[in-house]
Amino acid sequence: MELLKASDLVKRFGNTNAVKGINFHIEEGRCVSLLGPNGAGKTTTLKMLSGLLEPTSGSIDFKGEKAKDLRQFIGYLPQYPAFYNWMSGKEFLVFAGQLAKLNRKETEKRSDELLERVGLTNAKKRKIGGYSGGMKQRLGLAQALIHRPKLLILDEPVSALDPLGRREVLDMMREIKEETTILFSTHVLHDAEEISDDILIMHAGEIAISGSLGSVMEEKRQPILQIEFESQAVDWLKSIASYSFVSEVNIQGNKASIILKDMVNGKQTLLKDIVDRKLPIRKFEISQTTLEDLFMEVVKA
């Protein structure tokens, strides 16, 4: 079922269009990742969906109805969550729960439950001022979930964390995804590939690609040849671009990735070339384009 639909959403700041009329929808129960380079308009989009920012034009429908104040249904974790540092973790959760119109008793119970879940039970009486970055992120996740939102929006939930903290938050998201719909933005493509069902790629205020992760990958998948040389072979790599079966050559130092239109024919010709010219190679690998390649393609275009 369709949970949320954005139609022709535009946000203008002064003369710049941060978001240029985007259309998309989010299915209930899915985990959707919003990808895009810095400045693509991801945060602005998320803020409009969460009700923190008024769109310049366009509309947001929630469960098929024009929504007035979406905040009741949405849990939001900003990129840099901030708290009252003089409060304890538990106090803040109770405060957030009451602001979301839960009653006192329910809030107490729900807070303890969530603190347990995000692994802050031992720290719940400590002042938030003394929490580490990872602990604040987890507390932020707990406050977003306090009122059992229909849609959980996370803005770069793992970007600022160390590998361990990242792992923890991702595991938590995997659990949460069983209960509620998640929309999260990230520029760590690996994370998106790992846990999301659907992807939206934004670039320069527009949605470039959207769909389920599987179908997008299937549709855009291209065979790719990766060659690693012992020394640079730029001259040869430049010359192969003239072959008809080569569609793109990317050179990064001693490595090159070559997108081919015809793998069977292409790999043989290239391999023969390499042998003929006695080019020193370390690796010759055939693979498929990844989400990262897709992302780069979109962003460069």
């Binding site: 949405i74 900003p78 009252y84 119109k101």
Partner: peptide, 13 residues
Amino acid sequence: QSGVAGMVMIKPV
């Protein structure tokens, strides 16, 4: 400035 006003206003206040 600290952003905590935003944390309050993302609840239906």
